[in-house]
Nucleic acid binder design. Structure first.
Lengths: 235, 235
DNA sequence: GCTTTTATTCACCGTCTAGTTACTTATGAC
DNA sequence: GTCATAAGTAACTAGACGGTGAATAAAAGC
């Protein structure tokens, strides 16, 4: 009938693989949203990066907003599942605390996309996450996980008895997340590259120390500090 | 010559006030960028909010990017100047530390725009701030300010001797900033409203406590904790 | 083999948006 | 007063961008 039909006829047409396509779109979207934010992210660019036709993106996710929500939900689930795999219950309170700090640090250092995606969602007042039925079904494991760790530490007379699990979690993540999220402006501010290996390593150590001092009943006697001869145990 | 000219002729034409116009544009831009991010911010909306013609915006700031940069530079200067006005040198180390925490908390709690603007700039890898000649001339006061505070605290045998000023600053701001910046997603995460007055007050107290424990040589004897009967001084 | 379903492609569109052109008028210097 | 300059306005545009209609081909069901 028209040139359109004739042109469309000899399409090479890739082998079908809906799951893979969906996944490629999602990965490309996560990249694009994480590196540009919502408004500056380009739907055409996501399609190009995913190597699929833009139409598919609307087929699977409905809209740019739907796509952002899907990317965010995936990140949210990843974080929750990683937390569940932590298995803190099996180890002693103090090394458990250190392991928790390492986990948070390693996760966000390895997944900076999570940070920018979460920042974007906070800019939008969490309106995607708040109304997401998919994520509401997932109970974040952190509160119980940490409460148990704290309880055991208190029982062993090592931890303070008056610290809440949520406060501790936010403290750990805050120290890790803020440093990584704002290292660009902080580096300008202080005139040094905070993302160089040495400052990064230093900050990781600093977070460990800060958290120990916050949680331990008797922080002055922190093993690390005794080793460095800075304090001496007074028991 | 044309209808255009005839239509344009009978303009009401406001009294001239370039400085006020510039300021109104900047304030509107700060609002708009802070609430929507860069890509979702609308130049037309900024002009509308400022009550000026869009053309003026380009007259003063050249482009959307130029406008964002100007808004950011203003925030940066505001933060620096506020820091300079702190006058920590005049007071004792321990109340000085508490005053510093209060200052950071009060500033970001009262200026949430600073947070979202800085987040947006970090998303862009600080490319506006990095090349801003205007802000490079301003030396941020925090490092020396805090170093002096720490030095005096160490001399008085109250503070740890091995804590860097930059680490301390980032710790304080991190705890404050992360909580405020991410309260929306954190509230969903933990199923409670972290922006309600009570949690906010609690977090402020928590930051004070965390910082005291981090900085004090002898954190177990924190006055606040002694008051609450949680610990007893062991000197 | 035939039908139904669904993944995929191509061509296309209406609107929105940063930025501009062309012009007017207030203000201050002389 | 007048003249240069800067502040201000309205109308306009080129292109980008999110989103869609319709046709097609590959699987899946029978």
């Amino acid at each position: 009938m028209s040139d359109r039909v004739l042109d469309a006829a000899p399409t090479p047409s890739r082998k079908r693989d809906p799951d893979a396509s969906r996944q490629r779109i999602l990965a490309a979207a996560t990249d694009e949203f994480a590196s540009k934010g919502f408004g500056d992210a380009r739907v055409d660019e996501i399609a190009r990066r995913a190597g699929i036709n833009k139409r598919m993106l609307y087929h699977y996710f409905g809209s740019k907003d739907g796509l952002f929500q899907a990317a965010l939900e995936e990140i949210y689930e990843t974080i929750c599942h990683a937390g569940q795999a932590l298995e803190l219950a099996a180890i002693e309170p103090r090394p458990g605390l250190a392991k928790l700090v390492d986990f948070v640090w390693d996760y966000y250092a390895a997944n900076p996309q999570s940070i920018t995606l979460l920042n974007t969602e906070n800019l939008h007042d969490a309106r995607h996450l708040r109304f997401s039925v998919r994520t509401q079904a997932i109970h974040p494991p952190f509160e119980e996980l940490i409460q148990d760790l704290l309880d055991r530490g208190v029982a062993a007379d090592e931890f303070r008895p008056d610290l809440g699990a949520v406060d501790l979690y936010i403290t750990i993540v805050g120290l890790v997340y803020y440093y990584l999220s704002n290292s660009a402006t902080l580096s300008v501010f202080f005139g040094r590259d905070l993302r160089a290996p040495k400052p990064l390593k230093n900050w990781r150590r600093h977070v460990h120390e800060t958290i120990e001092r916050l949680v331990l009943k008797n922080p002055g006697s922190s093993a690390a500090e005794i080793d460095r001869g800075l304090v001496r145990p007074y028991k």
